[in-house]
Deep mutational scan, measured.
Amino acid sequence: PDLGLTQLFADPNLIENLKKNPKTSEMMKDPQLVAKLIGYKQNPQAIGQDLFTDPRLMTIMATLMGVDL
């Protein structure tokens, strides 16, 4: 199971919303991170391994779920 990750990354406004959010806007200036996020739309399971190697993803996930870290 993808634990709902498919829906989190399926939002067509995902990148724009993250660019507008004060907690994630600075991160979204990294083209490699943006490319990763776009890739998760097609393969949400890929985030599982990346969560352990890129701490920014935890902040992004929390933001998408509405959790304040």
Rank of each mutant, 00 (worst) to 15 (best):
P1H: 10
P1V: 15
D2I: 15
D2W: 03
L3E: 14
L3S: 13
L3D: 11
G4S: 15
G4K: 15
L5A: 06
L5F: 15
T6S: 13
T6V: 14
Q7G: 11
L8M: 11
F9L: 11
F9I: 05
A10D: 12
A10K: 10
A10N: 13
D11T: 04
D11L: 02
P12H: 05
N13Q: 11
N13V: 04
L14H: 02
I15N: 01
E16W: 04
N17P: 01
N17Y: 14
L18K: 00
K19Q: 11
N21C: 06
K23N: 11
T24K: 00
T24H: 02
T24C: 05
S25G: 06
S25N: 08
E26N: 08
E26Y: 06
M27I: 09
M28D: 00
K29N: 11
K29P: 00
D30A: 01
D30S: 03
D30F: 01
Q32S: 13
L33H: 00
A35S: 10
L37A: 00
L37Y: 00
I38C: 07
I38K: 12
G39T: 10
Y40A: 06
K41G: 14
Q42N: 15
N43M: 04
P44E: 05
Q45K: 12
Q45T: 13
Q45F: 07
A46S: 13
A46E: 11
I47F: 15
I47T: 04
I47N: 05
I47H: 07
G48T: 15
Q49K: 14
D50Y: 02
D50T: 04
D50Q: 04
L51S: 06
L51Y: 09
F52I: 14
T53Y: 09
T53K: 14
D54W: 02
D54M: 01
D54F: 01
R56C: 04
R56N: 06
R56F: 08
L57S: 02
M58I: 15
M58A: 11
M58E: 09
T59S: 07
T59G: 04
I60V: 07
I60K: 00
I60A: 02
I60N: 00
I60T: 00
M61I: 15
M61G: 02
M61D: 00
A62P: 01
A62V: 14
A62F: 12
T63P: 01
T63M: 13
T63W: 10
L64N: 01
L64P: 01
M65K: 08
V67N: 12
